[in-house]
Write a protein that binds this DNA or RNA. Structure first.
Lengths: 182, 182
DNA sequence: AGAAGTTAGTTGGATATCCAACTAACTCGC
DNA sequence: GCGAGTTAGTTGGATATCCAACTAACTTCT
């Protein structure tokens, strides 16, 4: 899981989102000299809208984490899944999907992959043979440890960008949005 | 564009992200009576990590906007694209993709669709025949107006969740993350 | 106990996205 | 003024995700 995961690690050249309306509607930067002057884009209302900035921030953060976890040869998307299984041994796929904010059908291939790679063990429940119980194997725990280290480093970067003073409030707001918006 | 758009409008049942570690590692909620007690999930470190919460918030917000814009029969994903073209008449596809934070190849089908539906006009540049100039048509402007109304309502909801006091700082932080994280 | 309803997980069809590789068109250096 | 390099946009192949529809297994109601 973890955010429409798996963007790869493309280096995207984003323009900074201009705070101010720069009067002159967009338009072809002169570039007399031949070098391409970074054209300043007018974002209009997007610049001050929460939805758009939320998306840009999320993707930026996810990309960074993606790169980091690919360095250790793991899929960033597996991180939330592994953590949730570790913390909730015997969790079912449906519960897992709800916790991770994904459709249960999205988890089918993810869990299959984790099982195939020996990270997760999957047993039918005794008393309800529709349901699986998921548990981490030793290998899964080891991988999770590595991924967690990655994630901690990543979090430290985010922390430094946000600043200790605002961090708590920032997360509260994110949680509130996740919980309260429709 | 606007966030790995087009999730449809699925009603996802997310568990709230528990702030506190609930000691007892996950585990099978009793459900004596037969009714399914909403199992309380242990999110472990995810609960306090920015990346995960950023994702959950972003998706929640996007879903809400998605539903709203589908009500007026438009694709939420087109919103940022139309806005950027409106504000930057004659913008090229590459510039547009950078501004929207998407790969230029992702824009090919989007722009095609907008042109086909008569929202956007696309002309080769005189002096550089590789490049297109994009402009909104009257129909495009009309659609954008509707979408903008939608988005304003959506923003108002987000505003009320965040609270006027924190809003400015919140957006600043989002911008900072988008700009500074790798 | 049997039919009707509900739930867990899978399958199928669709979309949005990425990256790498491509083509056509431009620019530069000599 | 021509070949090497660069840039704009498209194409192809891959992944992650969604929703709707399905099957198998439970539960409930009469």
């Amino acid at each position: 899981m973890a955010a429409r995961m798996m963007n790869g690690s493309g280096t995207k050249h984003r323009s900074k989102i201009g705070g101010k309306e720069n009067g002159k509607a967009g338009g072809k930067t002169g570039s007399k000299s031949g070098e391409t002057v970074a054209k300043s884009i007018n974002f209009g209302p997007l610049a001050t809208w929460i939805g758009f900035n939320l998306r840009m921030a999320q993707e930026s953060a996810f990309q960074a984490f993606s790169r980091r976890s690919l360095e250790i040869g793991e899929n960033p998307g597996r991180f939330a899944t592994l953590t949730l299984i570790a913390r909730n041994p015997g969790i079912s796929q449906t519960e897992l999907s709800q916790a991770a904010g994904r459709d249960k059908s999205s988890l089918t291939p993810v869990v299959e992959d984790l099982v195939r790679r020996g990270m997760v063990e999957r047993k039918r429940m005794r008393d309800d043979r529709r349901t699986y119980r998921l548990n981490l194997t030793a290998a899964g725990k080891k991988t999770l440890t590595q991924l967690t280290r990655c994630a901690s480093q990543h979090e430290r970067v985010l922390d430094s960008v946000i600043g200790a003073r605002d961090r708590k409030r920032f997360i509260e707001i994110l949680k509130k949005i996740a919980a309260e918006v429709e």
